[in-house]
Nucleic acid binder design. Sequence first.
DNA 1: TTAGCATACTGGTTAATACCAGTTCTATTA
DNA 2: TAATAGAACTGGTATTAACCAGTATGCTAA
Lengths: 248, 248
Amino acid sequence: MSSLIDPDSSTPKYMQLANFIKQQIDSEVWLPRQMIPSERQLESQYSVSRPTIRQAIDYLERLGYLYREHGRGTFVSPRKLQKGMQELTSFSEDLQQRGLQPGQIIRSIAWVTPSENIARRLEIPAGTQVMQIDRIRLGDESPIGLQTSFVALAPGEEITQADLEKSGSLYRILEDKFNQIPTEADETLETTLATVEEAVLLHIKPDAPLLLNERLTYNQYRRPIEFVKILYRWDRYRYVTRLARKSS
Amino acid sequence: MSSLIDPDSSTPKYMQLANFIKQQIDSEVWLPRQMIPSERQLESQYSVSRPTIRQAIDYLERLGYLYREHGRGTFVSPRKLQKGMQELTSFSEDLQQRGLQPGQIIRSIAWVTPSENIARRLEIPAGTQVMQIDRIRLGDESPIGLQTSFVALAPGEEITQADLEKSGSLYRILEDKFNQIPTEADETLETTLATVEEAVLLHIKPDAPLLLNERLTYNQYRRPIEFVKILYRWDRYRYVTRLARKSS
DNA sequence: TTAGCATACTGGTTAATACCAGTTCTATTA
DNA sequence: TAATAGAACTGGTATTAACCAGTATGCTAA
Protein backbone atom coordinates (compact mmCIF):
# COMPACT_ATOMS: atom_id res chain seq x y z
CA MET A 1 0.00 0.00 0.00
CA SER A 2 1.29 3.38 1.06
CA SER A 3 2.04 6.60 -0.64
CA LEU A 4 0.02 7.38 -3.69
CA ILE A 5 0.66 10.89 -2.55
CA ASP A 6 3.87 12.45 -3.82
CA PRO A 7 4.80 15.38 -1.56
CA ASP A 8 7.13 16.85 -4.18
CA SER A 9 4.60 16.85 -7.00
CA SER A 10 3.53 20.17 -8.42
CA THR A 11 -0.12 19.18 -8.06
CA PRO A 12 -1.25 19.83 -4.51
CA LYS A 13 -1.70 16.94 -2.15
CA TYR A 14 -5.40 17.53 -1.69
CA MET A 15 -5.86 17.32 -5.44
CA GLN A 16 -3.84 14.13 -5.64
CA LEU A 17 -6.01 12.65 -2.93
CA ALA A 18 -9.18 13.85 -4.66
CA ASN A 19 -8.06 12.26 -7.91
CA PHE A 20 -7.39 9.02 -6.09
CA ILE A 21 -10.82 8.99 -4.49
CA LYS A 22 -12.46 9.89 -7.78
CA GLN A 23 -10.66 7.01 -9.40
CA GLN A 24 -11.85 4.59 -6.70
CA ILE A 25 -15.38 5.70 -7.45
CA ASP A 26 -15.09 5.70 -11.24
CA SER A 27 -13.55 2.24 -11.23
CA GLU A 28 -16.31 1.08 -8.86
CA VAL A 29 -13.94 -0.02 -6.14
CA TRP A 30 -16.01 2.19 -3.86
CA LEU A 31 -19.67 1.74 -4.67
CA PRO A 32 -22.60 4.19 -4.50
CA ARG A 33 -24.06 4.66 -1.00
CA GLN A 34 -20.97 2.98 0.41
CA MET A 35 -19.14 4.78 3.18
CA ILE A 36 -15.62 5.81 2.33
CA PRO A 37 -12.88 5.58 5.00
CA SER A 38 -13.36 8.16 7.74
CA GLU A 39 -11.25 11.29 7.74
CA ARG A 40 -9.10 9.94 10.58
CA GLN A 41 -8.54 6.68 8.75
CA LEU A 42 -7.46 8.45 5.58
CA GLU A 43 -5.22 10.65 7.68
CA SER A 44 -3.19 7.73 8.98
CA GLN A 45 -3.34 5.66 5.79
CA TYR A 46 -1.99 8.33 3.49
CA SER A 47 0.01 10.41 5.95
CA VAL A 48 -1.69 13.67 5.16
CA SER A 49 -3.25 15.94 7.71
CA ARG A 50 -6.98 16.07 8.29
CA PRO A 51 -7.44 19.61 6.93
CA THR A 52 -5.89 18.46 3.67
CA ILE A 53 -8.22 15.48 3.56
CA ARG A 54 -11.22 17.66 4.26
CA GLN A 55 -10.15 19.92 1.42
CA ALA A 56 -10.14 16.96 -0.95
CA ILE A 57 -13.54 15.79 0.27
CA ASP A 58 -14.94 19.32 0.07
CA TYR A 59 -13.86 19.46 -3.52
CA LEU A 60 -15.46 16.15 -4.46
CA GLU A 61 -18.60 17.01 -2.53
CA ARG A 62 -19.02 20.15 -4.62
CA LEU A 63 -18.57 18.12 -7.78
CA GLY A 64 -21.27 15.75 -6.58
CA TYR A 65 -19.10 12.67 -6.10
CA LEU A 66 -19.52 12.47 -2.34
CA TYR A 67 -21.97 13.52 0.32
CA ARG A 68 -21.48 13.80 4.05
CA GLU A 69 -23.75 12.97 6.95
CA HIS A 70 -22.73 14.49 10.25
CA GLY A 71 -22.03 11.79 12.80
CA ARG A 72 -22.39 8.95 10.28
CA GLY A 73 -19.74 9.27 7.62
CA THR A 74 -18.96 10.27 4.07
CA PHE A 75 -20.60 8.35 1.26
CA VAL A 76 -20.30 7.85 -2.48
CA SER A 77 -23.10 9.58 -4.37
CA PRO A 78 -25.35 7.34 -6.45
CA ARG A 79 -24.17 7.15 -10.06
CA LYS A 80 -26.78 9.45 -11.53
CA LEU A 81 -25.71 12.29 -9.29
CA GLN A 82 -22.12 12.16 -10.35
CA LYS A 83 -22.51 13.48 -13.85
CA GLY A 84 -23.02 17.07 -14.74
CA MET A 85 -23.17 19.58 -11.94
CA GLN A 86 -24.38 22.13 -14.46
CA GLU A 87 -21.19 22.37 -16.38
CA LEU A 88 -20.58 25.07 -18.85
CA THR A 89 -19.81 23.28 -22.06
CA SER A 90 -19.42 24.29 -25.64
CA PHE A 91 -21.81 22.96 -28.24
CA SER A 92 -19.16 20.54 -29.49
CA GLU A 93 -18.48 19.13 -26.02
CA ASP A 94 -22.19 18.96 -25.34
CA LEU A 95 -22.90 16.86 -28.42
CA GLN A 96 -19.98 14.55 -27.83
CA GLN A 97 -21.36 13.79 -24.38
CA ARG A 98 -24.65 12.82 -26.01
CA GLY A 99 -22.86 10.45 -28.35
CA LEU A 100 -23.43 12.48 -31.49
CA GLN A 101 -20.79 13.54 -33.95
CA PRO A 102 -20.65 17.34 -33.80
CA GLY A 103 -20.38 19.29 -37.03
CA GLN A 104 -21.01 22.74 -38.35
CA ILE A 105 -21.59 24.82 -41.43
CA ILE A 106 -20.12 28.28 -41.07
CA ARG A 107 -22.49 30.70 -42.74
CA SER A 108 -20.65 33.93 -42.00
CA ILE A 109 -17.98 35.57 -39.87
CA ALA A 110 -17.96 39.34 -39.83
CA TRP A 111 -17.32 42.44 -37.78
CA VAL A 112 -20.63 44.09 -36.92
CA THR A 113 -21.94 46.87 -34.71
CA PRO A 114 -24.23 45.04 -32.33
CA SER A 115 -27.60 46.24 -31.18
CA GLU A 116 -27.69 48.47 -28.13
CA ASN A 117 -29.14 45.60 -26.16
CA ILE A 118 -26.32 43.21 -26.97
CA ALA A 119 -23.66 45.90 -26.44
CA ARG A 120 -25.05 46.52 -22.97
CA ARG A 121 -25.00 42.85 -22.13
CA LEU A 122 -21.41 42.55 -23.31
CA GLU A 123 -20.57 45.69 -21.31
CA ILE A 124 -18.92 47.43 -24.24
CA PRO A 125 -19.44 51.07 -25.35
CA ALA A 126 -22.19 51.58 -27.92
CA GLY A 127 -20.70 51.52 -31.39
CA THR A 128 -17.86 49.13 -30.56
CA GLN A 129 -17.59 46.40 -33.12
CA VAL A 130 -17.82 42.71 -32.28
CA MET A 131 -17.42 39.55 -34.32
CA GLN A 132 -20.65 37.92 -35.37
CA ILE A 133 -20.45 34.23 -36.24
CA ASP A 134 -23.42 32.47 -37.82
CA ARG A 135 -23.33 28.71 -37.89
CA ILE A 136 -25.59 25.77 -38.54
CA ARG A 137 -24.86 23.11 -35.97
CA LEU A 138 -25.00 19.48 -36.99
CA GLY A 139 -25.36 16.25 -35.08
CA ASP A 140 -24.38 13.18 -37.04
CA GLU A 141 -24.36 15.40 -40.13
CA SER A 142 -27.94 16.61 -39.97
CA PRO A 143 -29.06 20.02 -38.64
CA ILE A 144 -29.80 20.39 -34.95
CA GLY A 145 -29.61 24.11 -34.36
CA LEU A 146 -28.83 27.59 -35.61
CA GLN A 147 -26.22 29.47 -33.64
CA THR A 148 -25.40 33.16 -33.71
CA SER A 149 -22.47 34.28 -31.56
CA PHE A 150 -21.36 37.81 -30.74
CA VAL A 151 -17.79 37.85 -29.44
CA ALA A 152 -16.19 40.86 -27.76
CA LEU A 153 -12.50 40.91 -28.68
CA ALA A 154 -9.64 43.21 -27.78
CA PRO A 155 -8.33 45.52 -30.53
CA GLY A 156 -6.22 43.61 -33.01
CA GLU A 157 -7.70 40.24 -32.15
CA GLU A 158 -9.68 38.37 -34.75
CA ILE A 159 -11.25 34.99 -35.33
CA THR A 160 -10.88 33.58 -38.81
CA GLN A 161 -12.79 30.94 -40.67
CA ALA A 162 -9.62 28.85 -40.65
CA ASP A 163 -9.52 28.98 -36.82
CA LEU A 164 -13.06 27.75 -36.59
CA GLU A 165 -12.69 25.03 -39.18
CA LYS A 166 -9.59 23.73 -37.52
CA SER A 167 -10.79 23.49 -33.95
CA GLY A 168 -14.55 23.43 -34.43
CA SER A 169 -15.04 24.96 -31.00
CA LEU A 170 -15.20 28.68 -30.32
CA TYR A 171 -14.32 28.08 -26.68
CA ARG A 172 -11.09 26.37 -27.61
CA ILE A 173 -10.12 29.31 -29.82
CA LEU A 174 -10.85 31.77 -27.04
CA GLU A 175 -8.70 29.76 -24.66
CA ASP A 176 -5.79 28.93 -26.94
CA LYS A 177 -5.55 32.06 -29.03
CA PHE A 178 -6.66 34.83 -26.68
CA ASN A 179 -6.26 33.28 -23.22
CA GLN A 180 -9.92 33.98 -22.47
CA ILE A 181 -11.20 31.11 -20.40
CA PRO A 182 -15.00 30.76 -20.26
CA THR A 183 -15.82 30.13 -16.62
CA GLU A 184 -19.40 31.11 -16.03
CA ALA A 185 -22.53 31.82 -17.99
CA ASP A 186 -26.09 33.00 -17.56
CA GLU A 187 -28.56 31.12 -19.68
CA THR A 188 -32.18 31.50 -20.56
CA LEU A 189 -34.39 29.00 -22.33
CA GLU A 190 -37.68 29.65 -23.99
CA THR A 191 -39.87 28.40 -26.76
CA THR A 192 -40.43 30.18 -30.03
CA LEU A 193 -41.63 29.48 -33.58
CA ALA A 194 -39.48 29.07 -36.67
CA THR A 195 -39.41 31.82 -39.26
CA VAL A 196 -39.39 30.82 -42.91
CA GLU A 197 -35.65 31.31 -43.22
CA GLU A 198 -34.92 29.35 -40.07
CA ALA A 199 -37.20 26.55 -41.23
CA VAL A 200 -35.33 26.24 -44.52
CA LEU A 201 -31.95 26.12 -42.83
CA LEU A 202 -33.06 23.51 -40.31
CA HIS A 203 -35.06 21.40 -42.75
CA ILE A 204 -38.29 21.81 -40.86
CA LYS A 205 -41.68 23.38 -41.52
CA PRO A 206 -42.26 27.09 -40.88
CA ASP A 207 -44.00 27.67 -37.56
CA ALA A 208 -42.49 24.53 -36.09
CA PRO A 209 -41.58 25.14 -32.44
CA LEU A 210 -37.97 25.81 -31.52
CA LEU A 211 -36.09 25.87 -28.25
CA LEU A 212 -34.32 29.22 -27.97
CA ASN A 213 -31.24 29.20 -25.77
CA GLU A 214 -29.54 32.51 -25.04
CA ARG A 215 -26.28 32.57 -23.17
CA LEU A 216 -23.99 35.28 -21.85
CA THR A 217 -20.55 33.84 -21.16
CA TYR A 218 -17.99 35.32 -18.74
CA ASN A 219 -14.22 34.85 -18.75
CA GLN A 220 -11.99 34.11 -15.80
CA TYR A 221 -12.12 37.77 -14.71
CA ARG A 222 -15.89 37.87 -14.76
CA ARG A 223 -16.00 40.00 -17.91
CA PRO A 224 -18.60 39.08 -20.54
CA ILE A 225 -16.94 37.81 -23.68
CA GLU A 226 -19.68 36.16 -25.71
CA PHE A 227 -23.39 36.48 -26.23
CA VAL A 228 -24.90 33.60 -28.14
CA LYS A 229 -28.34 32.59 -29.38
CA ILE A 230 -29.01 29.01 -30.33
CA LEU A 231 -32.26 27.86 -31.92
CA TYR A 232 -32.73 24.13 -31.49
CA ARG A 233 -35.01 21.83 -33.41
CA TRP A 234 -37.61 20.69 -30.90
CA ASP A 235 -37.45 17.07 -32.11
CA ARG A 236 -33.67 16.74 -31.83
CA TYR A 237 -32.62 18.53 -28.68
CA ARG A 238 -33.33 18.39 -25.00
CA TYR A 239 -31.64 20.58 -22.42
CA VAL A 240 -30.31 18.89 -19.28
CA THR A 241 -29.17 20.55 -16.08
CA ARG A 242 -28.72 19.98 -12.38
CA LEU A 243 -29.90 22.19 -9.59
CA ALA A 244 -28.76 22.44 -6.00
CA ARG A 245 -30.63 23.93 -3.11
CA LYS A 246 -28.96 26.98 -1.62
CA SER A 247 -27.40 25.94 1.67
CA SER A 248 -28.16 27.73 4.93
CA MET B 1 -14.60 48.79 15.66
CA SER B 2 -14.52 45.27 17.11
CA SER B 3 -16.61 42.27 17.44
CA LEU B 4 -19.44 41.70 15.08
CA ILE B 5 -18.46 38.13 15.71
CA ASP B 6 -20.00 36.56 18.77
CA PRO B 7 -17.92 33.54 19.80
CA ASP B 8 -20.73 32.12 21.92
CA SER B 9 -23.35 32.23 19.19
CA SER B 10 -24.79 28.98 17.95
CA THR B 11 -24.12 30.04 14.38
CA PRO B 12 -20.51 29.31 13.48
CA LYS B 13 -18.04 32.14 13.26
CA TYR B 14 -17.32 31.60 9.58
CA MET B 15 -21.02 31.92 8.85
CA GLN B 16 -21.31 35.09 10.92
CA LEU B 17 -18.41 36.53 8.97
CA ALA B 18 -19.92 35.42 5.68
CA ASN B 19 -23.20 37.08 6.59
CA PHE B 20 -21.37 40.28 7.46
CA ILE B 21 -19.54 40.33 4.14
CA LYS B 22 -22.72 39.52 2.25
CA GLN B 23 -24.40 42.41 3.99
CA GLN B 24 -21.58 44.78 3.06
CA ILE B 25 -22.09 43.75 -0.56
CA ASP B 26 -25.88 43.83 -0.52
CA SER B 27 -25.91 47.26 1.08
CA GLU B 28 -23.35 48.43 -1.48
CA VAL B 29 -20.76 49.43 1.10
CA TRP B 30 -18.40 47.19 -0.85
CA LEU B 31 -18.94 47.74 -4.55
CA PRO B 32 -18.60 45.34 -7.50
CA ARG B 33 -15.02 44.81 -8.71
CA GLN B 34 -13.80 46.41 -5.50
CA MET B 35 -11.20 44.53 -3.51
CA ILE B 36 -12.32 43.45 -0.08
CA PRO B 37 -9.85 43.55 2.83
CA SER B 38 -7.14 40.92 2.52
CA GLU B 39 -7.36 37.76 4.56
CA ARG B 40 -4.66 38.99 6.93
CA GLN B 41 -6.46 42.29 7.45
CA LEU B 42 -9.73 40.55 8.23
CA GLU B 43 -7.84 38.26 10.58
CA SER B 44 -6.64 41.10 12.76
CA GLN B 45 -9.77 43.24 12.43
CA TYR B 46 -12.21 40.59 13.54
CA SER B 47 -9.95 38.40 15.67
CA VAL B 48 -10.67 35.21 13.82
CA SER B 49 -8.06 32.91 12.40
CA ARG B 50 -7.20 32.88 8.73
CA PRO B 51 -8.61 29.38 8.03
CA THR B 52 -11.94 30.54 9.42
CA ILE B 53 -11.83 33.58 7.18
CA ARG B 54 -10.96 31.45 4.19
CA GLN B 55 -13.93 29.24 5.00
CA ALA B 56 -16.23 32.24 4.90
CA ILE B 57 -14.74 33.46 1.63
CA ASP B 58 -14.92 29.95 0.12
CA TYR B 59 -18.58 29.88 0.95
CA LEU B 60 -19.32 33.25 -0.63
CA GLU B 61 -17.19 32.40 -3.64
CA ARG B 62 -19.31 29.32 -4.26
CA LEU B 63 -22.45 31.43 -4.00
CA GLY B 64 -21.04 33.83 -6.58
CA TYR B 65 -20.62 36.85 -4.30
CA LEU B 66 -16.83 36.98 -4.45
CA TYR B 67 -14.03 35.92 -6.73
CA ARG B 68 -10.36 35.55 -5.98
CA GLU B 69 -7.28 36.35 -8.02
CA HIS B 70 -4.09 34.75 -6.81
CA GLY B 71 -1.56 37.41 -5.89
CA ARG B 72 -4.00 40.28 -6.35
CA GLY B 73 -6.81 39.96 -3.90
CA THR B 74 -10.43 39.01 -3.38
CA PHE B 75 -13.09 41.03 -5.18
CA VAL B 76 -16.83 41.60 -5.14
CA SER B 77 -18.55 39.95 -8.09
CA PRO B 78 -20.43 42.28 -10.43
CA ARG B 79 -24.10 42.50 -9.53
CA LYS B 80 -25.42 40.31 -12.25
CA LEU B 81 -23.37 37.37 -11.09
CA GLN B 82 -24.70 37.44 -7.59
CA LYS B 83 -28.20 36.20 -8.26
CA GLY B 84 -29.09 32.66 -8.87
CA MET B 85 -26.29 30.13 -8.84
CA GLN B 86 -28.73 27.60 -10.23
CA GLU B 87 -30.81 27.34 -7.14
CA LEU B 88 -33.34 24.68 -6.71
CA THR B 89 -36.56 26.54 -6.08
CA SER B 90 -40.19 25.63 -5.90
CA PHE B 91 -42.60 27.07 -8.39
CA SER B 92 -43.93 29.47 -5.77
CA GLU B 93 -40.48 30.77 -4.88
CA ASP B 94 -39.60 31.01 -8.55
CA LEU B 95 -42.58 33.18 -9.37
CA GLN B 96 -42.08 35.42 -6.37
CA GLN B 97 -38.54 36.12 -7.53
CA ARG B 98 -39.97 37.19 -10.89
CA GLY B 99 -42.33 39.61 -9.20
CA LEU B 100 -45.49 37.67 -9.96
CA GLN B 101 -48.12 36.65 -7.48
CA PRO B 102 -48.09 32.83 -7.40
CA GLY B 103 -51.36 30.97 -7.35
CA GLN B 104 -52.74 27.56 -8.13
CA ILE B 105 -55.82 25.57 -8.93
CA ILE B 106 -55.64 22.08 -7.50
CA ARG B 107 -57.22 19.73 -10.00
CA SER B 108 -56.68 16.46 -8.20
CA ILE B 109 -54.73 14.72 -5.45
CA ALA B 110 -54.78 10.94 -5.50
CA TRP B 111 -52.84 7.76 -4.82
CA VAL B 112 -51.86 6.16 -8.10
CA THR B 113 -49.63 3.38 -9.36
CA PRO B 114 -47.09 5.17 -11.50
CA SER B 115 -45.79 3.99 -14.84
CA GLU B 116 -42.79 1.70 -14.80
CA ASN B 117 -40.67 4.55 -16.10
CA ILE B 118 -41.58 6.89 -13.27
CA ALA B 119 -41.26 4.15 -10.64
CA ARG B 120 -37.75 3.45 -11.85
CA ARG B 121 -36.82 7.10 -11.70
CA LEU B 122 -38.17 7.37 -8.16
CA GLU B 123 -36.29 4.16 -7.29
CA ILE B 124 -39.34 2.44 -5.82
CA PRO B 125 -40.51 -1.13 -6.45
CA ALA B 126 -42.96 -1.54 -9.35
CA GLY B 127 -46.51 -1.40 -8.05
CA THR B 128 -45.77 0.91 -5.12
CA GLN B 129 -48.27 3.72 -4.91
CA VAL B 130 -47.32 7.38 -5.04
CA MET B 131 -49.31 10.57 -4.67
CA GLN B 132 -50.13 12.29 -7.94
CA ILE B 133 -50.94 15.99 -7.70
CA ASP B 134 -52.31 17.86 -10.70
CA ARG B 135 -52.30 21.62 -10.54
CA ILE B 136 -52.74 24.63 -12.78
CA ARG B 137 -50.15 27.20 -11.86
CA LEU B 138 -51.07 30.86 -11.96
CA GLY B 139 -49.08 34.04 -12.16
CA ASP B 140 -51.02 37.15 -11.23
CA GLU B 141 -54.14 34.99 -11.41
CA SER B 142 -53.80 33.85 -14.99
CA PRO B 143 -52.52 30.44 -16.12
CA ILE B 144 -48.80 30.00 -16.69
CA GLY B 145 -48.33 26.26 -16.55
CA LEU B 146 -49.67 22.79 -15.90
CA GLN B 147 -47.92 20.81 -13.22
CA THR B 148 -48.11 17.10 -12.49
CA SER B 149 -46.15 15.87 -9.47
CA PHE B 150 -45.49 12.30 -8.39
CA VAL B 151 -44.37 12.16 -4.77
CA ALA B 152 -42.85 9.07 -3.14
CA LEU B 153 -43.95 8.99 0.50
CA ALA B 154 -43.27 6.61 3.36
CA PRO B 155 -46.12 4.35 4.51
CA GLY B 156 -48.69 6.29 6.52
CA GLU B 157 -47.67 9.65 5.12
CA GLU B 158 -50.11 11.63 3.07
CA ILE B 159 -50.53 15.05 1.53
CA THR B 160 -53.98 16.54 1.74
CA GLN B 161 -55.71 19.27 -0.20
CA ALA B 162 -55.77 21.30 3.01
CA ASP B 163 -51.99 21.06 3.30
CA LEU B 164 -51.53 22.36 -0.20
CA GLU B 165 -54.06 25.13 0.09
CA LYS B 166 -52.54 26.34 3.30
CA SER B 167 -48.88 26.51 2.27
CA GLY B 168 -49.17 26.63 -1.52
CA SER B 169 -45.76 25.04 -1.83
CA LEU B 170 -45.17 21.32 -2.03
CA TYR B 171 -41.57 21.78 -0.94
CA ARG B 172 -42.62 23.47 2.25
CA ILE B 173 -44.95 20.59 3.07
CA LEU B 174 -42.21 18.05 2.42
CA GLU B 175 -39.90 19.95 4.73
CA ASP B 176 -42.29 20.78 7.52
CA LYS B 177 -44.47 17.70 7.60
CA PHE B 178 -42.14 14.89 6.56
CA ASN B 179 -38.69 16.36 7.17
CA GLN B 180 -37.75 15.69 3.54
CA ILE B 181 -35.54 18.55 2.41
CA PRO B 182 -35.20 18.94 -1.36
CA THR B 183 -31.51 19.51 -1.98
CA GLU B 184 -30.74 18.57 -5.55
CA ALA B 185 -32.55 17.97 -8.79
CA ASP B 186 -31.96 16.86 -12.33
CA GLU B 187 -33.90 18.83 -14.89
CA THR B 188 -34.60 18.55 -18.56
CA LEU B 189 -36.20 21.14 -20.78
CA GLU B 190 -37.68 20.62 -24.19
CA THR B 191 -40.30 21.99 -26.48
CA THR B 192 -43.58 20.31 -27.24
CA LEU B 193 -47.05 21.10 -28.61
CA ALA B 194 -50.22 21.57 -26.60
CA THR B 195 -52.87 18.86 -26.70
CA VAL B 196 -56.49 19.94 -26.86
CA GLU B 197 -57.00 19.36 -23.16
CA GLU B 198 -53.87 21.26 -22.22
CA ALA B 199 -54.84 24.11 -24.51
CA VAL B 200 -58.20 24.48 -22.81
CA LEU B 201 -56.71 24.49 -19.34
CA LEU B 202 -54.07 27.06 -20.27
CA HIS B 203 -56.37 29.25 -22.34
CA ILE B 204 -54.32 28.87 -25.51
CA LYS B 205 -54.85 27.38 -28.94
CA PRO B 206 -54.23 23.68 -29.55
CA ASP B 207 -50.83 23.05 -31.15
CA ALA B 208 -49.39 26.14 -29.50
CA PRO B 209 -45.82 25.43 -28.42
CA LEU B 210 -45.10 24.66 -24.78
CA LEU B 211 -41.93 24.48 -22.71
CA LEU B 212 -41.81 21.08 -21.01
CA ASN B 213 -39.79 20.98 -17.82
CA GLU B 214 -39.22 17.60 -16.16
CA ARG B 215 -37.55 17.41 -12.81
CA LEU B 216 -36.42 14.63 -10.50
CA THR B 217 -35.86 16.00 -7.01
CA TYR B 218 -33.64 14.41 -4.35
CA ASN B 219 -33.83 14.81 -0.59
CA GLN B 220 -30.97 15.42 1.82
CA TYR B 221 -30.01 11.73 1.70
CA ARG B 222 -29.84 11.73 -2.09
CA ARG B 223 -33.02 9.69 -2.40
CA PRO B 224 -35.47 10.71 -5.13
CA ILE B 225 -38.67 12.04 -3.62
CA GLU B 226 -40.51 13.79 -6.43
CA PHE B 227 -40.84 13.55 -10.16
CA VAL B 228 -42.60 16.51 -11.71
CA LYS B 229 -43.62 17.60 -15.19
CA ILE B 230 -44.46 21.23 -15.84
CA LEU B 231 -45.83 22.49 -19.13
CA TYR B 232 -45.30 26.22 -19.49
CA ARG B 233 -47.04 28.61 -21.84
CA TRP B 234 -44.36 29.74 -24.27
CA ASP B 235 -45.48 33.37 -24.09
CA ARG B 236 -45.42 33.61 -20.32
CA TYR B 237 -42.38 31.74 -19.12
CA ARG B 238 -38.66 31.78 -19.64
CA TYR B 239 -36.22 29.52 -17.86
CA VAL B 240 -33.13 31.10 -16.35
CA THR B 241 -30.05 29.34 -15.07
CA ARG B 242 -26.36 29.82 -14.41
CA LEU B 243 -23.55 27.55 -15.49
CA ALA B 244 -20.03 27.23 -14.17
CA ARG B 245 -17.07 25.71 -15.92
CA LYS B 246 -15.76 22.59 -14.25
CA SER B 247 -12.56 23.48 -12.41
CA SER B 248 -9.31 21.55 -12.84
C1' DT C 1 15.88 56.50 -19.43
C1' DT C 2 15.04 51.84 -18.96
C1' DA C 3 15.50 46.93 -17.92
C1' DG C 4 15.47 44.02 -14.26
C1' DC C 5 15.48 42.50 -9.74
C1' DA C 6 14.29 42.74 -4.79
C1' DT C 7 10.56 43.32 -1.83
C1' DA C 8 6.28 43.37 0.11
C1' DC C 9 2.01 42.63 -0.75
C1' DT C 10 -1.81 39.20 -2.35
C1' DG C 11 -4.05 34.27 -2.10
C1' DG C 12 -2.79 28.82 -2.00
C1' DT C 13 -1.24 24.73 0.48
C1' DT C 14 -0.13 21.92 4.46
C1' DA C 15 0.53 20.61 9.18
C1' DA C 16 -0.53 19.68 14.10
C1' DT C 17 -3.95 20.15 17.52
C1' DA C 18 -8.13 20.79 20.10
C1' DC C 19 -12.69 20.65 21.11
C1' DC C 20 -17.85 20.59 19.65
C1' DA C 21 -21.85 18.07 17.81
C1' DG C 22 -24.36 14.51 15.90
C1' DT C 23 -24.99 9.03 15.60
C1' DT C 24 -24.61 4.34 16.94
C1' DC C 25 -24.09 0.72 19.85
C1' DT C 26 -23.07 -1.42 24.09
C1' DA C 27 -23.09 -2.16 28.80
C1' DT C 28 -25.23 -0.95 32.84
C1' DT C 29 -29.19 -0.21 35.64
C1' DA C 30 -34.04 -0.10 36.97
C1' DT D 1 -36.61 -7.30 29.75
C1' DA D 2 -36.46 -2.65 28.64
C1' DA D 3 -34.92 1.90 29.28
C1' DT D 4 -30.89 4.71 29.84
C1' DA D 5 -26.30 6.43 30.28
C1' DG D 6 -22.10 6.66 28.24
C1' DA D 7 -18.30 5.30 25.34
C1' DA D 8 -16.61 5.38 20.79
C1' DC D 9 -17.16 6.39 16.66
C1' DT D 10 -18.53 9.96 12.77
C1' DG D 11 -18.03 14.86 10.64
C1' DG D 12 -17.96 20.26 12.03
C1' DT D 13 -15.54 24.30 13.74
C1' DA D 14 -11.54 26.83 15.16
C1' DT D 15 -6.68 28.10 16.27
C1' DT D 16 -1.73 28.51 15.46
C1' DA D 17 2.09 28.32 12.46
C1' DA D 18 4.78 27.88 8.30
C1' DC D 19 5.98 28.14 3.80
C1' DC D 20 4.81 28.35 -1.44
C1' DA D 21 3.25 30.97 -5.50
C1' DG D 22 1.57 34.60 -8.06
C1' DT D 23 1.42 40.10 -8.65
C1' DA D 24 2.64 44.93 -8.30
C1' DT D 25 5.81 48.37 -7.42
C1' DG D 26 9.68 50.91 -6.60
C1' DC D 27 14.60 51.07 -6.40
C1' DT D 28 18.91 50.10 -8.48
C1' DA D 29 22.15 49.38 -11.89
C1' DA D 30 23.18 49.38 -16.79
